[in-house]
């Protein structure tokens, strides 16, 4: 309880609301809805990191309430990453749960060399890639989430489904299916780079830390993945 009170004070002083939304309350669905909402501002990131350290220390002492707070902070981003990688809600649900269970079991070994966010992302990514390698042998049934109400009013999407588009009669749901099919044709690492950068809005450096490679490799993978996607979706991008 003391930790939560302490964090509430820190939250007020940092005025985080302007950057990443309220800290104590769960972030809105898919926090990385736009890359600009990702906590990249240095002061906010520092405060969030120090709050994370406090919560991690408490979790290491077995405080489940502190870990619950960590889950609420990152569940949406972790879920979204796994979901975009699997294109299946049930698989994403299972893997997200497994990720946090594993994180709690291993939290005593977390030394704080990287941020908790990066660390838990790594667990999620490794779990997902292992899962996808096993799933290669069986047919992948996509189980896509519904599009939210704002999709129809998204200016980017409105401009895509315009008179210039030969597939203008296509609904957003059909377009969503085609997009997910094209994503599933990519290799795991290429899909991951596109998901983390183009969908979730992480920087090349952050992706490099998560994938344990340098930013140059991230850039080249991203370029290749986009080329592949552009080839697969050529009919819908005219």
């Amino acid at each position: 309880m003391l930790i939560l009170v302490e964090m509430a004070i820190m939250t007020q002083t940092a005025a985080l609301n302007d950057v990443v939304g309220t800290v104590s309350a769960p972030a809105p669905a898919v926090t990385a809805n736009s890359p600009s909402t990702f906590p990249s501002a240095s002061s906010a990131a520092t405060t969030t990191a120090s709050e994370d350290r406090t919560l991690v220390r408490a979790s290491q002492e077995g405080d489940l309430r502190a870990f619950d707070e960590l889950i609420r902070r990152y569940q949406e981003r972790i879920y979204a990453t796994i979901y975009h990688m699997t294109s299946n809600h049930e698989d994403a649900n299972d893997l997200t749960q497994e990720t946090f269970v594993k994180a709690y079991k291993a939290i005593s070994s977390f030394k704080g060399d990287s941020g908790f966010f990066t660390w838990v992302y790594r667990i999620a990514v490794n779990k997902t890639i292992n899962f996808l390698k096993q799933r290669k042998n069986r047919h992948n049934n996509m189980s896509l989430n519904d599009l939210d109400f704002n999709a129809e009013h998204d200016p980017d999407l409105v401009s895509l489904i315009s008179d210039k588009n030969p597939r203008r009669d296509m609904s957003l749901t059909e377009l969503q299916e085609k997009l997910n099919e094209a994503m599933q044709k990519l290799s795991e690492v290429h899909r991951l780079v596109v998901t983390l950068h183009d969908v979730q809005g992480l920087s090349h450096e952050e992706i490099g830390k998560i994938m344990d490679c340098n930013p140059g490799t991230v850039r080249s993978r991203l370029f290749y993945a986009r080329q592949q996607l552009q080839g697969s979706l050529a009919d819908y991008l005219k």
């Binding site: 997200t96 519904d146 599009l147 939210d148 999407l157 994503m183 969908v199 996607l229």
Partner: peptide
């Protein structure tokens, strides 16, 4: 640019309502 606009569609995919309240 067009591809990135299309990829924006993925940000609108949402799990069932209340999912993130139950997950923790």
């Amino acid at each position: 640019e067009s591809l990135q606009k299309l990829l924006a569609l993925k940000r609108h995919e949402e799990p069932p309502p209340g999912y993130f309240n139950r997950l923790p």
